[in-house]
Simulated scan of single mutants.
Amino acid sequence: MLPELEIYYYIILIYLTKEDHYSVRKAGDVQKRPKTVILNLFMRVLLCALLLFVSNNKEKGSSVRYKRKGKIKDRRDIDLVFIGGSTHSGTSLIRAMLDSHQEIYCGYGTWLMRNILGGLKNWRKFNRKQFLVNAGVYPEALDDAIAQFMLEVILGHCPTSKLCCYKDKYIHKLFKNAKFIHMVRDPRAVVYSSLSQNDSNNAASYWMNFRKWDEDNIIILNKCEELGKKYCLLVKYEQLILKPVTQTKRIFKFLGIPWNDEVLHHERHINKSLILRSEEYVSEDLFKPLHLNGLKSWFGNLPKEIEENLGHNGIGQLMYFDYNPEEHTPIYGRPDEFMMKMINK
């Protein structure tokens, strides 16, 4: 006979692979949305695989590579670092800088992990969630399945002697000892960088992206406030570029790892071919030494409507982070001695 918990896994497997519900109902008609059906089926099958993965590994115990700094009873208690923030906020740069340190391995973000975490969010809102609760699968088994799968992805390539770091979203509920570095950048630079890739310069696209930036940062700031300074660190892209010595020392103090100046020369350690294969978008600037170009690339390039009305359209986090919408060519600060030498080379 199967163990009781494993029976629950098979119950939920059968339930989640049932025929998808019709997703659009209009005036009594029922229509299928093929893309939605396929995506939902994929996520359901993936969840089943995760649940069965946990079931099959319950008896095996922890792998050696999960044991760091002594024995860890629960693999989810392992020390991890997550890097997050809006797209084009410097997350790839800080990932590369941390990966330059001999005691840290910082992996690349993947679409797979984002979909996994998006699925977890949706499953928690599942309109028949009580079925999962009654089956004994929600929330513990589901959280455990997601966490164990994430550990396989994150730790699969991370040497046992290093602190493992990952550039993607972070859920503290899954990893209680993990720390989170939240990158923030002037939204004007973020949105310009994003839209310039697509040759889009219309005001509507800008407003939509500004609001997305604002919403994302509100969510993360609330979570950081809840976690406290022990687990969440805010790093502003502009200050990291202008004062890399001070800012990287601050980051390494947060991580509890000795700082060294190799993190200031990420371009010496970066694997360009691997990154281009792994990351969805990478600026060529990532492969160059630290420079100041990214601070002012958007100057004079925003639509006039945006520059004139940004301060009056409810983008509340602008002022919270001290980005003044009335300054169209802001001065973010003075470069430190290290950056002055880089500029004068």
Rank of each mutant, 00 (worst) to 15 (best):
Y9C: 04
K18A: 11
R25T: 14
V30H: 10
K35Q: 12
V37D: 15
L47K: 10
A49M: 14
K67I: 12
K67P: 09
K73F: 09
K73R: 07
K73D: 15
D74R: 03
L80S: 10
S89N: 07
H101K: 04
I104S: 04
Y105C: 00
C106L: 02
G107C: 09
Y108R: 11
Y108Q: 11
R114P: 03
L117H: 05
L117T: 02
G118T: 02
K125R: 10
F126I: 08
F126W: 14
G136A: 00
I154H: 04
L155C: 12
G156I: 06
T160A: 13
F180H: 08
P187Y: 04
L195Y: 01
K223P: 06
Y231G: 01
L234P: 05
V235W: 07
E238G: 06
L242K: 01
K243A: 09
V245A: 08
T248P: 04
I251P: 03
P258H: 09
S273N: 15
S278P: 01
E279M: 13
F287W: 12
N293C: 10
K296A: 10
F299S: 14
E305L: 06
E307D: 15
E307Q: 15
M319H: 14
E327H: 15
T329H: 15
T329N: 14
I331G: 12
Y332G: 02
Y332P: 02
G333F: 01
D336V: 03
F338Y: 09
M342N: 06
